[in-house]
Design a protein around this nucleic acid. Structure first.
Lengths: 244, 244
DNA sequence: AAATTATAATATGTAATACATAATACATAA
DNA sequence: TTATGTATTATGTATTACATATTATAATTT
């Protein structure tokens, strides 16, 4: 038996011991408390000093656990008003992380694909909620397309596709896609470097997409969007194969 | 001019002053530093005491800012090894928030819709990456369907649809959907209470979906999935109208 | 009496110091 | 040469004190 095997064997007998820090423990205890007490959005939570006494740890630890919960947007604190549970923002923190430089190629790829999937998948929602004003706005955006040439092309893309997302009347989704823009831009630019973009045969323009939104249905929209995004789909599929 | 109007008027002249806490400032300064120094995943960052001196604030403040960055998974700390930048997990913290009780109806609705959209949108990715083993696994899952009746039906749904997501070979997406399960279950259950579920005419069963995955194409898959999810689409569209 | 301004009380925010603890590097002994 | 002991170091925890913003209450003015 090799040394490594012996170590593995020993490990299976004596499971590695995990030492949760006090802060870890306090954090989970707090979450349990909120659940147990069935606290709802807006409810006050115990004061720091009360928590210290109740759990028998220093205020330092309590505050560190509370800081974590504040960071994920679960609680909110104000001087003298104490702390309250708050409607958490699911996308909080995401904007700080969604930077190409700090994410791995694989995660970037993941997010890029997620956006592509959403772009196709929102068809039903879009058509169920679209209003005349949406078409008017989109046409207005179309008129500005020629102004965005070269490096600013991405800005136009963002405006256009962002406006389509807005039709779905789903605020979380809308914000999510706008946060993804830097990544979209990065992966897009990177793809262009690999090989000059060639316009595919059945390319669907932005104008045609608006036309479909005006007169078509979800199926036609997806068909159009699929052609519109064809280069991106092709690229992401090729990239993923390279990662394997 | 009313009192409220006067206050608004005054406010437009004297913009409200926003007082960023020291922790806020340190946090942004740290992010700037990482960017400026072009630190990459795995690189060490200055020690707490160095940061104290450099910024002229107490270690308390430094640590609170660092705690925030740790919470969003941007840095990692180990005793004596100091702190290092780390590949952030985009979905960190999300599992603590994705609980029906603490989210508003609107956000729950948003997330539910997002999942529906993804379910439709992943078709291209799925068909570009599917392998024989995927079909084998799905068929195995199908055989267990009869075991999951009543309240456990949702577990089967999770297993089945989760396995489809897995075909897309997108880890972030896979984890995301699995985190959404509690919400899916909640909104689903709530919908059932409103009115007994009636099986629509062209309902597509799980077995049929597997068949399409085996022999069809993205378009046929989406068509099948759309019918399969019809009750959910109908409900979410109706719910959204109520919220307006 | 009503409205404004001063005062006190309170809970979070910040500071400073000391010590505990885990991980590493180095020294030491078998 | 290897395993064990020791020192060092940076983060983790504790304690105490004070600063500051907000609320409620009291005092003052008109």
């Amino acid at each position: 038996m090799s040394k490594a095997e012996g170590s593995r064997n020993l490990q299976s007998k004596l499971r590695p011991i995990i030492n949760y820090s006090l802060t870890d423990q306090v954090e989970t205890k707090l979450l349990e408390l909120f659940k147990k007490e069935d606290l709802r959005n807006g409810d006050a939570i115990p004061k720091e000093n009360e928590l210290c006494e109740a759990m028998g740890v220093s205020r330092t630890v309590i505050r560190e656990a509370l800081t974590r919960l504040k960071t994920i947007g679960l609680i909110d604190s104000k001087k003298n008003r104490g702390m309250t549970l708050t409607e958490p923002d699911l996308l909080i923190g995401l904007d700080k992380l969604l930077q190409p430089k700090i994410l791995s190629e694989e995660t970037l790829q993941d997010m890029f694909e997620m956006r592509l999937a959403l772009e196709m998948g929102i068809a039903e929602l879009v058509f169920s909620r679209i209003k005349p004003q949406d078409i008017i706005d989109l046409k207005a955006i179309l008129k500005t397309e020629k102004d965005y040439k070269g490096d600013f092309e991405m800005d136009f893309e963002a405006r256009f596709h962002g406006r389509i997302y807005a039709i779905a009347r789903n605020n979380t989704l809308l914000r999510f896609q706008s946060m993804l823009l830097p990544i979209f831009k990065y992966v897009h630019d990177k793809g262009l470097k690999l090989k000059d973009e060639e316009i595919p045969k059945n390319y669907v323009t932005h104008t045609m997409i608006v036309k479909v939104l005006e007169t078509g249905n979800p199926e036609k929209y997806r068909d159009a969007m699929k052609r519109h995004l064809k280069v991106h789909f092709d690229r992401t599929i090729k990239m993923r194969k390279l990662l394997e």
